[in-house]
Design a protein around this nucleic acid. Structure first.
Lengths: 203, 203
DNA sequence: CCTTTTCTGTATCGATCGATAAATAAATCA
DNA sequence: TGATTTATTTATCGATCGATACAGAAAAGG
């Protein structure tokens, strides 16, 4: 039961990686098939045979982003010992990753397809869902803090989660506009200054 | 010295207003000439005669946005009696305006052209400049607070200005993702919880 | 060998992009 | 009145968009 037919002549994973970085740098609508085939080093029929369509390729690129770049940012929610460390770690990792010199700046999930065209409605909704998910993820981590006794039950976990995700999403814009790593880290620090007040009990 | 030639048959200001709301809702790249002519109720030659090009029309639309919608958000920097009221007012007005039901959600300057295509490089840089300007504007207001004795000279006005603009820019993303007015206002409140700590002197 | 299967390169599809040429209509100037 | 000027409508322009038809090439099955 070996592989039938002519074998693929390019590395699919490598081509996907290149496509991901292209979408990351220029968004779904900003990348043309011509851009993709040039960067991936293949012709259109090979792209369609391996990835079905531009939209399907983008979805795979987003999944690759989430399992690599995105994971580095959000994994500390599970790792950090306290809710505070989870939030601070997420912001610090965002500041660091958004200002890498060898990668596009900012977050693919935030910048990848902000506007809903006629042609990208599904892609746009997918990313919006992921952004909403990230609020939920943080909210659940804060709720865990409540249940573990770290945070008061009077704390408004939804408002706090929304606030810190808002800061993190704004950092994508700042990173795109050239903010230095130091400034992004300073922004994370500023956001954490609110922590003690936010978890004091009064929403 | 009256007007020569056939008079324009449409209201230029009204057409510009409609174009502005279209760009606001769908971004520069997301709006086609066909979209524009349909919404403005004119044919392509009339658009080009009155506005020169899609890019020039976008620039005028951004200026209209800044002098109306944008002004409502940033004018409190000059009006508010204290630096704190200036920041809080800017965030509150953003939360309110970004969640209006009769207008596109979020900010045209933030969402209007985030990625730089081959065709929109200039437009993209213009908006990026405006975003950097908004940090400078807030920073100058904070500096005024220092000079008036409201804030300590040890305060890091650049970091604080960047932080609050980051929150405001993140609110554009949140607004696009459907965040309620209450949640946006709660985010503004959360950001202000950091104020006392931020202006305490230690950066 | 020949058939089947799958991938590859070339060349191009119809649709849409931003932008205009050409002819006509409506105003002022002389 | 005619000449001039500007705006309008219609019908496109060349370029690019995402996506494919087609024929040849490279593998496995028989």
């Amino acid at each position: 039961m070996g592989e039938r037919g002519r074998p693929r002549s390019f590395d699919r994973a490598n081509a996907l990686q290149r496509a991901m970085e292209l979408f990351w740098a220029k968004s779904f609508e900003g990348v043309s098939l011509s851009d993709l085939t040039t960067t991936m080093g293949i012709n259109p029929p090979s792209l369609y045979a391996a990835f079905s369509s531009k939209e399907a390729l983008f979805r795979e690129a987003v999944e690759l982003y989430r399992s690599t770049e995105g994971s580095r940012i959000w994994s500390c929610l599970d790792i950090a010992a306290t809710a505070r460390d989870a939030v601070f770690g997420m912001l610090r990792k965002s500041a660091e990753d958004f200002s890498r010199t060898d990668k596009p700046r900012g977050c693919l999930v935030v910048l990848g397809a902000l506007h809903s065209d006629l042609s990208n409605t599904a892609v746009n909704r997918d990313l919006a869902d992921l952004r909403v998910q990230s609020v939920m993820q943080l909210q659940e981590r804060l709720q865990r803090g409540v249940e573990e006794g770290e945070l008061s039950q009077a704390v408004d976990v939804q408002a706090i989660a929304t606030f810190y995700v808002t800061v993190q999403q704004g950092m994508s814009i700042q990173a795109r506009d050239g903010a230095s790593r130091e400034m992004l880290l300073a922004t994370a620090d500023c956001a954490m200054v609110a922590w003690d007040g936010l978890v004091a009990g009064q929403a």
